[in-house]
Design a protein around this nucleic acid. Sequence first.
DNA 1: AAAAAGCGGTGATTTTGATCACCGTTTTTC
DNA 2: GAAAAACGGTGATCAAAATCACCGCTTTTT
Lengths: 218, 218
Amino acid sequence: MTNENHAYIKDCFPVLEERLFEEIKSCCTYHEFASSTYVVKQGAYLNFLPVVLKGQIKMFAEEEDVQFLLYYINSGESCILSFNHLFDPKPIQFSAITEEDTLVMTLPVNKVKEWFIKYPTFARILINDYQRNFEDLLRTTKEIVCYGIEERLLNYLMAKGKRADSNMVHLSHSKIAMDLGTSREVISRTTKKLEKKGILSQHKRCIELLDTESITKI
Amino acid sequence: MTNENHAYIKDCFPVLEERLFEEIKSCCTYHEFASSTYVVKQGAYLNFLPVVLKGQIKMFAEEEDVQFLLYYINSGESCILSFNHLFDPKPIQFSAITEEDTLVMTLPVNKVKEWFIKYPTFARILINDYQRNFEDLLRTTKEIVCYGIEERLLNYLMAKGKRADSNMVHLSHSKIAMDLGTSREVISRTTKKLEKKGILSQHKRCIELLDTESITKI
DNA sequence: AAAAAGCGGTGATTTTGATCACCGTTTTTC
DNA sequence: GAAAAACGGTGATCAAAATCACCGCTTTTT
């Protein structure tokens, strides 16, 4: 089992030096999370760096009883949850929940610091992923500010579809509403509107995206 | 003049190794910007890292004829504009304008990469600043999503007052409107409302914050 | 099979903020 | 000092989205 997990590290960091790989293997811890469970909670202090090896995690803000999606962390893609807390013992400012069954590896902060200095490629990986987080957050912010729910919903659904590699999105209106920081009714009405436009069609507990080609993306 | 500029580097990066300091001095370029001028423009490709040595720069998004403030880069505080573009030749996704007369130093990308590996403390500085950018952006996003203009305006004004270390904020309603991504009329009405509440008072072309102590911050 | 919980639809109403239109004052510019 | 530009105030209207209220249909639980 552990050996199997080790393999995910290689998948996630293909360019890892052998020495670093050994070091990581020797001191990492694996955690399996079922879908829809908290990985980290806003306000917590972390003394480890979580790395997503398999699955997907949703980062979101919780503020004044409003909750909204910031961006996703995927395994193949970005692995770093955050290192806001690595060099500064500050509480993290967002929460993370698994979107599906997810395998997370945690690395102790002091080791990460050490490797960051010792292995430039490791530093490079961290930077790279952090950079993507920043860009994703910026894109989300722009979307929220500049586009109405109709466009945001469509974007959201298309991203979901793309990820699942399917036109069928299995999500309840209320879940979508949470992610977009709005209410169920609004989603319900908006999906209706999109349905009338022929952009999607709703089946029992599932939304089918039609004619995604013709839709101009943001 | 150049020597004077060099001194700002020390102010900005107090813990710089002497060797690195020499390297920076040997290949940096200084640029002075008057207030309200573009330092970088959204969509541009940069092949240098801009560092704010003196003054203040406003980072903002330009999207669909809406423009809004993301966060500020201050000299004493954060110096790194961005390194989104360092490792990946991507266009930057925001613009930067000086808020006051500002001295910027630019470092060639290849040198920055080199130093990033060679001088761990340098890497640490970059990370640290980038981290702040992320946190600032996140805070802005939360504010936009979770609070109405009244609160956002107040927050904005208080930040301005704090920075100027004064209760007097010299800004036109339309400038404020741009920063908050709204229109002049809205600001005009909102300031009036806040004035009636006794939170501020408006004089000729300038807003005075009253009783800032009693205001609960976000 | 009955009860409970979750899901989705929809009308009515309200709130917030955006937009339009217009006007008077102040400041700059030439 | 006159013209132009920038600034600020305010009424009227509009649109998007939030909120409330209610209802019927599924799915799950017991």
